[in-house]
Simulated scan of single mutants.
Amino acid sequence: MYKSIFIDLDDTVWAFSENARDTFQDMYEKYHFDRYFDSFCQFYAIYSERNEELWAAYGAGKISKEELNDLRFSYPLQQVGVEDKDLVKAYSDNFFAEIMYKKKTMPHAREALEYLSAKYKLYIISNGFRELQEQKMRSAGVEKYFKKVVLSEDIGVHKPFPEIFYFAMSATQSELRTSLMIGDNWKNDIAGAKGAGIDQIYYNTKGDEDFPFRATYVINDWEEVMGIL
């Protein structure tokens, strides 16, 4: 039934949340942020809430990549009264230099990719930045499973807009009716794929129970994919 499988990278294959938290912990200690915050948990909670809002704005085309990165890294320090552009630049540059070498993947993702790559053509489709995504895949040792990486930067359109899915079809010589999208983000991956006419597997990492519509398939663990495909 399917020939091409498109897979989101962050928090679907590569464990972005864990790897990012680990990297921020490194930055917190290296730059002695305990001077400004009661704890790492306080710093990371402030960062995380604003980061989600800014990524939504970036996805909607309201801010640029440069604005996204400047705002999200400066925000936590500003909330404790610290205005230091040199410090923000140093720790943000260091963050990007380190995070791409983190290796954690989602549970059972490797086993599932090994299984799927023997039967289907696998592709990454992501809103992330090319300079990071490809290295993250290499660091985690998963790049060998994928035929191509399709990124929103390639055409200036982000998931969930259908144009990026149509572009992915063209770039990989795939067809909508024989393609499948796997991702952890309901709006970007599942609603986006459905809007483009592509079947979906929702990787339900958050234990959601209330869905706006029925996805083609829902899994809570990568192991379940092998019972579907």
Rank of each mutant, 00 (worst) to 15 (best):
181 M>Q: 08
71 L>V: 00
177 R>G: 01
167 F>D: 07
106 M>A: 10
70 D>Y: 06
50 R>S: 04
57 A>Y: 03
68 L>R: 00
113 L>K: 02
65 K>Q: 14
189 D>R: 03
151 L>R: 02
23 T>R: 05
7 I>T: 05
224 E>K: 11
144 K>P: 00
129 F>C: 06
121 K>D: 15
128 G>P: 00
207 G>L: 13
16 F>C: 04
21 R>F: 04
142 V>E: 04
185 N>E: 11
54 L>R: 04
97 A>D: 15
15 A>M: 10
83 E>A: 12
21 R>Y: 04
170 S>M: 12
107 P>R: 01
11 D>L: 11
228 I>E: 11
65 K>W: 02
55 W>D: 08
145 Y>G: 07
127 N>L: 07
207 G>Y: 12
190 I>K: 08
8 D>P: 10
78 Q>Y: 06
186 W>P: 01
78 Q>E: 15
153 E>G: 08
31 Y>P: 01
216 T>F: 11
95 F>D: 07
123 Y>S: 08
69 N>G: 05
189 D>V: 07
226 M>A: 13
59 G>W: 00
208 D>F: 10
210 D>V: 14
122 L>K: 01
121 K>Q: 14
81 G>M: 04
156 G>A: 12
61 G>P: 05
199 D>Y: 06
165 F>T: 03
46 I>C: 08
15 A>E: 12
101 Y>G: 04
140 A>R: 00
71 L>M: 13
124 I>L: 09
2 Y>N: 09
167 F>V: 00
206 K>A: 15
46 I>M: 13
104 K>P: 00
39 S>I: 06
95 F>G: 04
124 I>R: 01
147 K>F: 03
69 N>F: 14
83 E>S: 13
119 K>S: 12
95 F>L: 07
89 K>P: 00
6 F>D: 09
188 N>R: 08
196 A>I: 01
115 Y>L: 05
205 T>D: 08
89 K>T: 14
128 G>F: 13
170 S>T: 13
180 L>Y: 07
30 K>I: 12
177 R>M: 06
81 G>D: 03
131 E>N: 11
221 D>L: 09
184 D>Y: 09
81 G>W: 02
59 G>L: 00
110 R>D: 14
35 R>I: 01
165 F>N: 08
179 S>D: 10
159 K>Q: 10
51 N>Y: 09
76 P>Q: 09
105 T>Y: 01
69 N>L: 15
187 K>A: 14
135 Q>I: 14
182 I>G: 07
162 P>R: 14
27 M>E: 13
89 K>W: 06
145 Y>N: 10
185 N>F: 06
3 K>Q: 15
123 Y>N: 04
183 G>L: 09
151 L>P: 03
183 G>A: 12
17 S>F: 05
213 F>V: 11
136 K>E: 11
63 I>N: 02
207 G>P: 08
50 R>D: 03
12 T>D: 09
23 T>A: 11
163 E>L: 10
222 W>D: 02
34 D>I: 07
20 A>L: 07
70 D>V: 03
39 S>C: 10
37 F>D: 06
226 M>I: 10
221 D>T: 07
47 Y>I: 00
103 K>P: 01
220 N>Q: 15
54 L>Q: 10
52 E>F: 11
128 G>D: 13
167 F>L: 02
190 I>S: 09
170 S>F: 05
41 C>S: 14
